[in-house]
Simulated assay, not measured.
Amino acid sequence: MKIAIFTDTYFPDMNGVARTLKRLADYLAEHHISCKIFAPKTPSDYVADNLHQFTSLSLFLYPECRMAFPNLNQVKTELESFSPDLIHVATPFNIGLCGSYFAKKMNIPLVGSYHTDFDKYLKYYNLQFLSKYLWRYMTWFHSPFQKLFVPSMETLNQLQQRGFSNLELWGRGVDCSLFHPDYNKLSGRMRYKAGNKLLFTYAGRLAPEKDLNTLMNVAASLPESINEQFQWLIVGDGPQREELEAQAPENMVFTGYLKGERLAEVYSISDVFVFPSPTETFGNVVLEAMASGTPVVCANSGGVKHLVKDGVTGFLCEPGNPESFEEALIKLINTPSLLHTMGREGRNFALTQKWDTILESLVLSYRGAAEAGEEIRYA
């Protein structure tokens, strides 16, 4: 089987979509399934034999993603040469449109995946008036797909209510050999000058849709009597970083983006992972923290609420309510035994979320869609 993937973000971009697709591409290669990826050219030097890149510019609202300008003649030539059994469109922008166009034009079975709730982003950029137009476009864009893979039941239910069809769950796994609790706590804490303090960590894009205002309000409102007992670690980058650093308390450290073992080490040495984002379709960072044996305090919203078992692996808090997050953190501070039991339960859950099992199921769905497409083509 040969798969062509069209996406407007790909490795080494630092977002969940890019990382998920790189994991998928690696899995396909390991199982001798040919894969060709069409993606924007980025400022990085990353190249791969199966990666076809196009000139691109950063998106205004989302600089980490890029608006590409695919050369249609090149795409057609590449597809004719590769002769894919299936096209997978992962994003609804220019390259995604290109993939959908050629699937129809060349009569190639077409599937897609839904990764981002752009509608939820709108209010954080004062663009709510675009919501109905966005949904019209998203409904039109996804209507030709034989299958539309979604990352969580929350997203599946939401899209069903919007009239989307052919939905299928494609969850996410976690590499528990990379993300684990056993990194050297002493050296990690020395690196970030945390000492013996409790370490509260956030990891993700520093942007309005992550609702970091709630996190900053929590940091400012925790009682002064306990401020010396903990330190904040903010992992990531984005358009809000400068603003956040300007208002940050003295016990808050910004690291920029981390990846690989350095990121895994941070999860491992942290006492609590704090994640206020209400806009996640899944929440990869939450699962990574749980795999690292770290309790999670997060918004009871989106795909995240299906990962965290309230009171068992962490606490689900009212979105946008600093008092709810503050209450959960104080409970953990005052009950150290909870940190250990929740961390252990989170790790046990993460161990069941295996990438190989999840991607094997996706490939079976690919085969079903490709075979169904062949039957239609020759009917």
Rank of each mutant, 00 (worst) to 15 (best):
K305H: 01
P84Q: 06
L79E: 02
E265R: 14
D85N: 11
S143L: 04
V363G: 11
T77C: 08
N71D: 15
E224D: 14
L244V: 07
W140S: 05
G173K: 01
K193G: 05
V274Q: 00
D8N: 04
M106R: 09
R66P: 14
P151M: 05
T214W: 14
T279R: 13
V312G: 00
N251K: 06
P249S: 11
I358E: 10
G368W: 05
T91Q: 04
P239C: 09
T155K: 01
S152W: 12
E245H: 09
F60L: 13
L110Q: 14
N184C: 14
G236R: 08
E242A: 09
K22D: 11
Q74D: 10
D26F: 01
F6H: 00
E371L: 11
G204H: 05
G173E: 03
D356P: 04
K76E: 10
V266I: 15
I330P: 03
E360R: 07
S187N: 11
F149L: 08
L212G: 11
A39L: 01
K123T: 12
N71H: 12
G373R: 02
P295C: 01
N184S: 15
A291E: 00
F179T: 02
L97I: 06
G283M: 08
L130Y: 05
R172K: 07
T55R: 15
P109T: 08
P70V: 12
T294F: 02
K309T: 00
N196H: 13
G283I: 07
A379L: 15
L199S: 02
L57R: 13
E250A: 14
C317R: 02
E209D: 13
E154Q: 07
G373W: 03
G99P: 06
F6R: 00
F149Q: 03
P239I: 13
A48P: 05
K305D: 00
L212P: 12
G188W: 04
V297N: 00
